[in-house]
Design a protein around this nucleic acid. Structure first.
Lengths: 337, 337
DNA sequence: ATCTTGTTTTAGAACGATCTAAATTAAGGG
DNA sequence: CCCTTAATTTAGATCGTTCTAAAACAAGAT
């Protein structure tokens, strides 16, 4: 079963040149004569030669492999992100090692060791909740280039690709205020990540900038069910809000289910706005107003940052922040002015 | 920046033993004395030694790496599948190389070559549309173990993990018939894959077994938009159906949007049933009746089949088929008897 | 002819692990 | 104290590539 590999040496023998020459041909070096190149390439095709990248890495230290760590593969935000990364890496003839940390520090540590063992050239990391701000320094000391994405620890210690949630939240709040909504509550996940911090900062700022009232923060876990259940908590607030801005579309969708169960019509009685504009936003009832963050674009940007870093380890740290876009649908359509 | 790797040799030197001994310790061989093992392990920890799996593979031909090829990373069916694969592989201390064929034969070929070059131990393949039935034989001739999943070419030539769509479609049709629906149309994607064949076979059989009428097949492409547009085609059928069974939930959700736009109330005027029970099924309006296929379970099964195959290349070909479960929601709730 | 100069090609040592086959050590028996 | 057997340890070759430094060759200048 285990067919034996065709090696450089065999190609060399058949083509009547040395291994070194074949190696040069494989790597498209300009040093070899046109005639020789052609002959060697023909032999490679005949023998179905496939270069062993592992062996090559052993010598020249480039595996054309990058690791990607996401905290979650169910949330389609992360999978679109992943699609963006994979797309760009594929174009550069690199391969993606995928791992899911499940937002668990222990798993994240294991995965990093595994990646290290496999000799990845670099890592795109979406740090798990509770990741120490020292991790980037640690990875650096291992000689492992990192790009953080979507979440960040140790601000500015590594390249970063993300969305501008401060701006995204501002867009959403402004929109609600224009519609005449006055009191806005933020429905957040409990997990303490930079993704949460950023949205909360944006919320505080946007409230301060507009004439809206701060309707407080309600926390839930990241799932429809949790969010649907938290509808009760929102409705029971002392001073009931007339709009709810949600951490993401998943919470928004769940909240709308919970609201309708409680006899409150989302969009009319209470405006609901999500963040991320996941595909599902079009399918909820009513269709969900959301702020598009283009996760695939963020993934692509992260991949390009890493490619740049691999090409030049001393390049200055760079941040690639994608601008958000408000998508208005029926869950906030009604103008109550 | 590029920190130098700690090698077996360095550990050996510090611990005062030979490289061979350290290698045995790394691989947890029972051959080394308890005392030596402890000393070596301590040194490994001190020096932060990480075994170079690429170098190891060069010698012993096992990279602890498997490739996974999916046709799509947007459809959450595939990402849940992927999550299942990753989970099991992680448990076995293997790493997943991910690639997206985008249902493109050319890309699929490239990816397979790339995987070959990286020395993957095996591949989990969800073949792209139009994949030749010879591909399994080809991979076999490369000495590359494959498990097919979700789709299949060259039936029986490799291990396979999938869902029982014939049964799934039967469950859906029976359900509709019990509700008093008489004429059922199948809304399908156009792409000619085994996934489509299987559903169509199931549909024909289920129609034959029950007293339902065959409402014909309408084709669309795999997207909400396409499916929403095809609502018109469904409503314009000669003999309008009173139920539509859809290729998957994405089409079903799109169809319901299109129907409502056309003034037809899904669930009341026309029953709609999906397949796969994606998370979004709970969030559509009305909530979508669907058949749960447990994609994560299929992914896990595929991973286990591959692990088994890697352990024993001569094991008999095996199929792992997961049983479907009907989930009734409002899109088909009304009994019209 | 010999010397440059420039272009191609190459022998042989890496890279970091594992394997094979043999050497060393320890323990028990006579 | 030597011999046998079992338990540990090891030297050195090996996997498939790339690198370094030098060799071989060609062509023009002297």
């Amino acid at each position: 079963m285990q067919r034996k590999r065709v090696t450089l040496g065999q190609v060399a023998q058949v083509a009547g040149v040395s291994r070194a020459t074949v190696s040069l041909v494989v790597r498209k070096s300009p040093l070899v004569a046109e005639q020789t190149r052609e002959r060697v390439e023909q032999v490679m095709a005949e023998l179905d030669y496939v270069r062993d990248i592992g062996a090559a890495r052993l010598r020249n230290n480039s595996s054309r492999t990058v690791g990607v760590i996401v905290p979650n593969l169910v949330n389609s935000f992360f999978t679109e992100f992943l699609a963006g990364v994979e797309q760009v890496m594929g174009e550069e003839d690199r391969v993606v090692l995928l791992a899911n940390s499940q937002d668990d520090l222990h798993r994240q540590r294991e995965i990093l060791q595994r990646f290290r063992g496999h000799g990845v050239d670099g890592v795109i990391l979406c740090p798990a909740e509770g990741t120490s701000a020292d991790l980037p320094a640690q990875l650096h000391s291992w000689g492992l280039p990192v790009v953080q994405s979507l979440r960040e620890v140790g601000q500015g210690s590594t390249d970063y690709a993300g969305a501008d949630y401060v701006e995204g939240v501002r867009l959403a709040v402004q929109h609600l205020v224009h519609l005449g909504r006055r009191r806005i509550t933020f429905l957040s996940v409990a997990a303490k990540t930079s993704a949460r911090e950023e949205r909360l900062i944006g919320f505080a700022r946007a409230i301060a900038e507009t004439c809206a009232e701060d309707g407080g923060i309600v926390e839930t876990d990241l799932s429809w069910e949790g969010s649907a259940n938290s509808a009760a908590a929102v409705l029971a607030l002392d001073n009931r809000p007339d709009a709810v801005l949600c951490f993401n579309d998943i919470l928004a969708a769940g909240l709308m289910l919970g609201l309708r169960d409680a006899g409150v019509e989302p969009g009319r009685d209470l405006a609901v706005v999500g963040l991320d504009d996941l595909p599902l936003a079009k399918l909820t009832y009513p269709p969900l107003t959301s702020v598009a963050m283009n996760p695939a674009g963020i993934g692509a940007a992260a991949a390009r940052l890493l490619a740049r870093r691999l090409a030049d380890a001393d390049a200055p740290v760079e941040r690639s922040i994608i601008a958000p876009r408000l998508i208005v649908r029926d869950s906030s359509a009604l103008n109550v002015n």
